[in-house]
Design a protein around this nucleic acid. Structure first.
Lengths: 121, 121
DNA sequence: TATCAATATGCATACGATGGTATATGCGGT
DNA sequence: ACCGCATATACCATCGTATGCATATTGATA
């Protein structure tokens, strides 16, 4: 994959937020939607975009599609993801996303352990 | 400056090449044109773009405009520039650019030391 | 001041990415 | 077989950004 494609992917805030979330583990589309407060189509399209680039992998779990960072990591990507939370000013958004993620996982565990497992959180 | 703007800047191959060249020291527009094999308008506009972003600074030297990486480096940018030459496959382009740069400097030194100095190469 | 070289800018156009709506697919449960 | 939920896709409008051409600006030199 060429460098320019990677940077093109990174130059959208929502894609960055998604990658940042997936860095902590797989998530299904509906949970991404909830955390990001975004609509289904948008999230779905961006995931497809990143899947075609080879940045993320998708796996079906019952009716959910679970997305994760691709197994064969791209060093350039990995390095850039590392520093998202430390980014001056903007790091807040990324840190908050990860907090929301934790809350979500807790809630799912309490309400329906099975579903939490199914969704790989 | 926000992350997205930085990545937007990085997602153009020619801008990357320019930044890579400036990492080794200042250059004027005509030398950039020569090394990149690009036309004046394009180079000039991309430099302006990067100047407005705060990535590069410009200084007039007689009739030449000499561009350099901005004094107050942006960490995210610095880190990304570091690995350009090592990028799988594509690193070649960036390495070749730096070679061309060296040849250019040599030639200028031989032909006209004064001009070489004026152009800060 | 006329002129040339180096560089910048304005404007029109084209292209690619993005967003929205509607619709399709795939799976589980009844 | 049907329905509902989760997700994907097609299609179209839109908008940002790059590109090309023409022209303006700036500094040096005669």
């Amino acid at each position: 994959m060429d460098i320019v494609s990677i940077y093109k992917c990174l130059c959208d805030r929502q894609r960055l937020r998604i990658l940042n979330l997936l860095k902590d583990g797989p998530l299904c589309v509906c949970h991404l939607m909830e955390i990001l407060g975004a609509d289904q189509v948008k999230v779905s399209k961006q995931l497809r975009y990143m899947k075609e680039l080879g940045m993320v992998d998708a796996e079906r779990q019952a009716q959910w599609m679970v997305y994760r960072l691709a197994d064969d990591q791209i060093p350039l990507l990995t390095e850039n993801l590392k520093c998202l939370q430390d980014c001056a000013g903007e790091g807040v958004v990324f840190r908050k996303d990860l907090q929301k993620r934790k809350q979500l996982v807790k809630r799912l565990d309490a309400a329906s352990p099975l579903r939490a497992i199914a969704c790989h959180c």
